[in-house]
Nucleic acid binder design. Structure first.
Length: 475
DNA sequence: TGAAATGTTGGGGCG
DNA sequence: ACGCCCCAACATTTC
């Protein structure tokens, strides 16, 4: 009987379209699937919301494997040691996995691969998380793209959609199974308190496929306009599924192309997948976007220390309804609508002049779709320090954004119920409403809902002045 | 994947 | 009838 193959699951928590799993099955012999809760100190620990999602996703993956006569082996520790131990225990002759491209991973995984090969164990590594390998798309002169549009123009030509690879019907089991820890041991689900009551989404491969199918049939054809309205389900909602690899970006690409939605709407959606690829490329060519400004001029930016402002922002108590609605949605559900992410990020970095890294860290802990490349890249995009970033002087007016994208105040009412009885005219800026109107709506500023923690006009001028101090072309 | 300031135009009220 | 002014409405420029 041939030796077993170890499939090391990482951010590819699916059975369909999984190259590492396919390679193991093609190789023949028993297949042992393992997930390692990696405690390598140099790697960034997962945030709380991500751990909640991971718990459910692993549960789903384990059930899917058990339905196919297999198991998911759970181990915790230093990945290098865990994999080494498992190879020794099982006598595996081949280890396969799909690469993770986060900072520090490539080097660490290379060391693991070298160590395995040194033991005479074969290793095969695939890319299951992105349409294209990072660094593969280069300019005519061999450089890396720093601007999204030319990047995506070149990149989308290189994408090979491939064919859907359905989940295997069964996985050959080994004679004896290695020991496994349990999900309960890991405590990924929060306790004392269990804050997860409002968390939104359906972790796992089945949930991911259902989300994709629903999005393509219900929202893709009007994506361009509806994606900006936070009170409507106009976005794909795929980000946590893609982050954990419960669905492959190739499957998303194929589904979008196969739909009969208008071409411009499909292109608009796929360009968002393109930003995911772009951000990965920036991460892999420009260093750690979660820590360092891509544009070094911002190293001298005069950020303010403002713990009270940061806390108000985190808790959704800034006095700006659209900002508070977004922050509360995030805290409750682990998700925030994309349009609102831009508004709250602009507010933190430009109105409060708080370093984008503080926002990045908060999102890292509270988002179920927290992803180093996308989160860091997008924060820097808003802050103005990123690749192909919005110019710093593009300062969102939270009132205007609110009036434009939540004109009836539906989204605000959902997340800021203390303002629910204000009408569409007054809900975007309650401090500007007539006192009578506020009284009738039961709104007492400073008591039932905060006064704005900062004045918009003053903050805008201050942000522009701060920006002047780092401008290269200044006198 | 802005907003605000500034510039331009044209209709209409009015002396 | 005419010029003047006001000011939407839209366009352009600036941050």
């Amino acid at each position: 009987m041939s030796s077993p193959t170890l499939v090391w699951f990482r951010r590819d928590l699916r059975l369909a379209d999984n190259s590492a799993l396919e390679a193991a099955l093609r190789h023949g012999g028993p297949v042992i699937c393992v997930y390692v809760l990696d405690e390598t100190p140099s790697l960034r620990p997962m945030g709380g919301a991500s751990r909640w999602w991971l718990d459910k996703s692993l549960k789903a993956l384990a059930a899917d494997l058990e339905a196919r006569g297999s198991r998911l082996i759970l181990r915790r520790g230093l990945a290098e040691a865990v994999i080494h131990d498992l190879v020794t225990e099982t006598g595996a002759g081949l280890v396969t996995w799909n690469a993770c491209f986060d900072p520090g991973h490539a080097e660490r995984d290379g060391e693991i691969a070298r160590a395995l090969k040194g033991q005479g164990v074969a290793v095969r590594i695939f890319n299951g998380s992105y349409l294209l390998d990072p660094g593969k798309v280069v300019t005519k002169t061999g450089g890396t793209y720093g601007v999204f549009t030319p990047f995506w123009k070149a990149a989308s030509l290189q994408v090979k959609a491939g064919h859907a690879q359905p989940a295997p019907a069964a996985l050959p089991a080994p004679e004896t199974w290695p020991g496994s820890e349990t999900l309960a041991d890991w405590g990924l689900h929060p306790t004392r308190p269990d804050w997860s009551g409002g968390m939104t989404g359906t972790p796992g491969e089945a949930g991911a496929q259902a989300r994709l199918a629903a999005f393509v049939s219900e929202a893709l054809s009007s994506y361009g306009a509806m994606r900006d309205i936070p009170s409507r389900p106009g976005t794909s909602g795929l980000s946590p599924h893609l982050h954990f690899g419960e669905i492959s970006p190739r499957a998303v690409w194929r589904a979008a192309h196969a739909s009969n939605a208008p071409e411009d709407q499909r292109a608009k959606f796929l360009s968002e997948i393109g930003w995911r690829e772009f951000n990965l490329n920036i991460l892999n060519t420009r260093g750690d976007v979660t820590r360092r400004n891509v544009n070094p001029a911002f190293d001298a930016f005069p950020w303010r220390e403002d713990p009270a402002g940061l806390a108000a922002w985190q808790k959704g108590q800034t006095g700006y309804p659209i900002v508070d609605a977004g922050m509360r949605e995030l805290w409750t559900t682990g998700i925030m609508h994309n349009r609102v992410r831009m508004i709250v990020a602009s507010f933190l970095t430009k109105h409060l002049l708080i370093d984008w890294r503080a926002g990045e860290a908060w999102f890292w802990d509270t988002l179920t779709d927290a992803d180093m490349a996308s989160n860091g890249g997008n924060w820097q995009w808003v802050a103005g320090s990123g690749a192909d970033a919005a110019p710093y002087f593009r300062i969102f007016n939270p009132i205007r954004q609110s009036e434009t994208f939540d004109p009836e105040g539906i989204y605000i009412r959902r997340w800021v119920p203390e303002l629910a009885r204000l009408g569409p005219k007054d809900i975007h800026a309650p401090w500007a409403a007539p006192a009578m109107v506020r009284a009738e709506a039961g709104v007492k500023l400073g008591s039932t809902y905060p006064l704005p923690i900062i004045d918009h006009d003053m903050a805008r001028k201050r942000a522009l002045e701060a920006y002047q101090t780092i401008r290269k072309d200044k006198d």
